[in-house]
Amino acid sequence: MFGTYRIRRHLAVGTVAGAMLISVACASAPPAPTAALDEANLAIQAAAQDDASHYANAELDQARQKLLLANDAVAMQDMVLAGRLANEATVTAELATAKTEAAKAQAINVELNRGALALIEEMQRVGDQQ
């Protein structure tokens, strides 16, 4: 009888300790996502200033949606989700900026190339006339 009780008590202690271990391992206390939210805001502003709405509108739009969802999550006290969404908004805004820069750089090259091609074509045309 007595032995059975001891066994049960040990089992209970083990279960509680295990449960605590699970919570520590998989769901550490969520940090306040304020910094992440600020960072996302800045990244979106930078992308917008870079004229990302013209060159990478899909990414800029997605970054803004993510930030809105992050703020919703803060309101719902889901700080883990809020932090993740804020980070997603940041990288997406950064991608919008990077794509914008790439598009602008390529546009300049296309213009350069077109200039050279136009000259070559002009020469061929003149050559044909002779």
């Binding site: 040990h10 089992l11 202690v13 083990g14 279960t15 295990g18 699970i22």
Partner: peptide
């Protein structure tokens, strides 16, 4: 001994649970 082994079993079980959950 029985009690001790039961305790170890419980810890092992929980550990297994932890490992499984993650």
């Amino acid at each position: 001994n029985q009690i001790r082994s039961a305790g170890i079993l419980a810890v092992a079980l929980v550990t297994a649970l932890v490992v499984t959950s993650c």
